[in-house]
Simulated scan of single mutants.
Amino acid sequence: MTDMTDPDLQPDLVDSTEYFDQAFDGAPLMAILRGMGTERSLALATTAWDLGIDLVEVPLQTPTDREALAAVVAAGRERGKDVGAGTVLDMATVEAAAESGARFTVSPGLDLEVVRASEEAGLASLPGVATATEVQRAHTAGLRWLKAFPASLLGTGWFPAMRGPFPEVRFVATGGMNARNAADFLDAGVRVVAVGSALESDAELARLAEVIAR
């Protein structure tokens, strides 16, 4: 286990906004590989990268997920692709993400302690929001990239409503997203749409390719 108290092993503090500004530049999609196991996660990560989706997230909820994350991180490193850890809820998950080689963390909700722990561990942080209050708290803390979750329940109208008071915030729509509704959410002002099972359907892949080519 890495001794994060050793100053010689402390990574540089990451600016999450700067990281995601670069990572999502010209990228309308990211991939989420939830609970798929190592072999399937590797296969779908390759599918995503081949399609032109650069960022892949592997949520951490079971020991198997951690094995899958480490394997996808290794595969991504060979192709120059960053891989993140999802469902990061606490300090222990932040540490697991860092030890697995992830470059960023994604959380379903807004916990500024998790955000700061991620950045201090050298990982960018993408916390989740679903209300104006949460967006304001994140904005006040200096965050400009946020995960809107669950996006399918928030609906496309939520995003232009948030853009009024928070024009600098960029949203990643997550939850219920697929190739059929991705374009609608992007047209509503979402900067990135996160997809998962769509990567396993040839028909969905064709639609995702159209979204990327827009």
Rank of each mutant, 00 (worst) to 15 (best):
S118H: 05
V88N: 03
D82S: 09
G176H: 07
A194P: 00
T131M: 02
V83Q: 04
D111R: 09
G157H: 10
D90H: 14
W158A: 07
P167G: 14
L205Q: 05
R77N: 05
L153D: 00
E120M: 08
F159K: 02
G80R: 10
V73M: 10
G80S: 07
T140K: 03
V72W: 15
P150H: 04
E78S: 09
G175R: 00
E168A: 11
G164M: 12
E204F: 10
G189A: 10
G84L: 12
V94E: 11
V169I: 10
L153S: 01
V72H: 06
F104W: 07
W145G: 02
A198M: 13
A117K: 01
A130M: 05
A68E: 01
E134F: 14
L123C: 06
D202M: 08
T156F: 15
A97N: 07
V190A: 00
L112E: 02
F149P: 06
A194I: 01
A203I: 15
P108F: 07
A75R: 14
V115R: 02
V190P: 01
A70C: 04
G86M: 06
A98P: 09
G122E: 01
A194R: 00
A183S: 09
A132M: 04
A138M: 04
G155K: 08
R163W: 12
R103A: 12
A132D: 05
P150M: 10
Q136H: 08
A96R: 06
F104Q: 01
A182S: 08
T174S: 08
F171E: 00
R191K: 06
V211W: 00
R144C: 14
A206H: 06
A96T: 11
A206N: 03
F171P: 03
A179F: 00
S118G: 04
T105A: 15
T87Q: 10
A124Y: 06
V72Q: 06
L123R: 02
S118F: 02
T93F: 15
A74N: 11
A203G: 05
A97Q: 09
P165G: 12
V115L: 07
V115C: 02
V106E: 01
R103E: 07
E95K: 05
R191H: 11
A92I: 15
A179N: 01
V169W: 04
